[in-house]
Design a protein around this nucleic acid. Structure first.
Lengths: 356, 356
DNA sequence: TGGTGGTTTGCATTCGAATGCAAAAATGCT
DNA sequence: AGCATTTTTGCATTCGAATGCAAACCACCA
């Protein structure tokens, strides 16, 4: 490996190497050889803001194009300690809220030059495994819109992997969060219900361990009692359509005198609830029964449902989540931040004057 | 760096090193040092089937646990030339068919020890960019359920990245495919329509360049003409709910004498169509208008819709897709394979006797 | 012409795990 | 015990790009 005289001799007739001829993809060394420069020059050409002269860049780029060279993100990740991968944790396929969030986040990530590593998480056990996987893949950060225990979060923290929570957080622990606070809108909706004569409400809430459900339920309860609307029944579902149908059944079973309005903690359950009311109980929604809910997912506005619901600004929230992950990656020492977005009431058509 | 006598001396009091104490995650070298063995031993411990003795494994594992060591997938990928990443290309958030497929595939991949790198693709230009990204990340393979031009496919082929097409393929080019062929069921459904007295059908199909749409349309046309049912109108949508509503409007505009059945090329459009029929045109589905469609996504069976539709066995198809990617990764020279699954008719409740 | 300062460039090393090869250890057999 | 065979282990190198440092180059001015 004698260091040859620093004069370039690219005239070796290997200039006609067809890229990938033997299954190997071109590396920065191949490009360097073809262009008659050093590997570092090639590397610098692909690093924005690096010190490189015009003609050098030109020469390298020409060779790179010829060989269809693209830097190897894996190798780059190894040396820079930045994978540009972000783990996105969403849960089940049964709540159509998640796909919306997922796609939005993925697009925002792409825009920021990051890749989404997708993980589906149904239980905390899943989360356990997922965290290990993400750790193995050296993700730069985690955006979690699904289950995660405090212990798991602390583990990630200890490993210095930035986490942004999407619509959930731990109140007794500092963390970075994008969150939708619909309390204003809840009050508006409840007020409207009051004006429409509703005095007895049913509630279909989510799993006990779910923060979003707890918070929303609390807000609803607060507003209800403020306006003197009674909660005749509170049943627990799991955010799925099916648990909306069975939820209404359950309410029906528990109280003889049906409430005039059912408040569902998310759209999926509201849709189940509405379908149950109409198809099974033969009720007219909203004339016989009003229904309101949360999320504002796309299909909640299909003509069959037209839910009166409180929408989360998913687009802005996703954008914020990605911004925040980037910030935390770049300045891990910075203190945590919580960004809270207001909800937005979608009037819909699923509420009406209470039947007398 | 004198090579010390091959006697272990792990008693260096660094045994109390707290993992990650200075922000560095443990590497195989750290584990090796703590366990008093070589780095290669550590590596072998994490490779299933490697030649390692029981006590060695035990010692290494103990040290690994203490340091919370997990092999670095990025470094591994670099040396093994296998990233264990698979790019999954799905399109828009507006057709709920995709999330279902995506989640299924992701789960199957996880089961096979692979990670899904998610890409959303709306146009062929997107696909272009996505392919470059995937290439940079050294994905082991691509599962494409979205747009991809022949040129793009050939590019991937040239780069020797295995591709599995999900429900689409190029007929004039060898490729690996999982596909759902609903022709049997189409015939059944059309026959049933005939029996129910339908003689005039409307069609809402998808974009011209979409193979799934073309194929399904062809099958429908074939069966219709076999049974002597006329196509009074064929309009084009884009697989979204909205294009289902506008599709029915369009049909209504084009022909004065409304068809007795509308066949939609996917569920989303069928739902839009049904909602339009009911809420805007005031029709009773199925009494005034029958609707049938394709896909069998979850929400097509919600009580508001209960579509008569031809379901794809998404679960089995996803599993097959992952299997096939694995096979192609391991034996790239093997010839291509096309796995075709039958559809399954879901009776639903969206068809009835044709109004006289 | 020579010196100064600034910009380009290349060299050599690094990231963390895998692996072919040879040395060492363990096992079996006579 | 002595030798052959098999299994286990460590050494050294490799993957592909990034980067600190020093050498080379360039421009400019005195």
């Amino acid at each position: 490996m004698a260091n040859s005289p620093r004069k370039k001799k690219p005239s070796k007739s290997e200039a006609k190497v067809v890229p990938l001829i033997k299954g190997r993809r071109a590396t920065s060394y191949d490009v360097a050889r073809l262009a008659g420069v050093s590997q570092s020059a090639v590397s610098r050409c692909f690093k924005p803001g690096a010190s490189i002269s015009g003609k050098m860049r030109e020469r390298v780029m020409k060779a790179a194009k010829e060989l269809e060279y693209q830097p190897n993100a894996i190798a780059r990740g190894l040396i820079t300690q930045r994978s540009n991968l972000v783990a996105v944790l969403v849960s089940g396929r049964l709540n159509l809220y998640y796909p919306e969030v997922l796609f939005k986040i993925t697009e925002e990530l792409a825009e920021a030059g990051l890749q989404a590593l997708l993980f589906t998480v149904e239980t905390e056990d899943d989360a356990e495994a997922v965290i290990e996987q993400a750790w193995q893949y050296q993700v730069d950060g985690v955006i979690s819109a699904s289950h995660m225990s405090q212990a798991q979060y602390k583990l990630l923290e200890k490993r210095q992997i930035p986490v942004v929570f999407f619509n959930r957080y731990f109140s007794d622990h500092p963390n970075t969060v994008v969150y939708c606070d619909p309390s204003e809108q809840v009050r508006d909706v409840v007020k409207q219900l009051y004006t429409l004569g509703h005095r007895r409400a049913g509630l279909i809430i989510g799993p006990e361990d779910n923060m979003v459900s707890r918070e929303r339920a609390r807000m609803v309860q607060d507003s209800l009692s403020e306006f003197g609307i009674g909660t005749v029944c509170e049943v627990r579902g799991d955010f799925t359509y099916e648990s909306g149908t069975s939820g209404l059944q359950e309410i029906n079973r528990q109280v003889m005198d049906r409430p005039s309005v059912v408040i569902c903690i998310n759209d999926m359950m509201a849709m189940g609830c509405m379908d149950e009311a109409r198809s099974v109980l033969g009720l007219d929604v909203p004339k016989d029964l009003s229904i309101v809910s949360f999320d504002g997912i796309g299909m909640s506005q299909f003509a069959s449902y037209e839910l009166t619901t409180i929408r989360q600004p998913i687009g802005r929230m996703s954008e914020a989540a990605v911004r925040m992950i980037l910030e935390r990656v770049e300045r891990p020492e910075q203190s945590h931040e919580k960004r809270v977005f207001e909800g937005a009431m979608i009037p819909g058509g699923s509420i009406a004057r209470a039947p007398s």
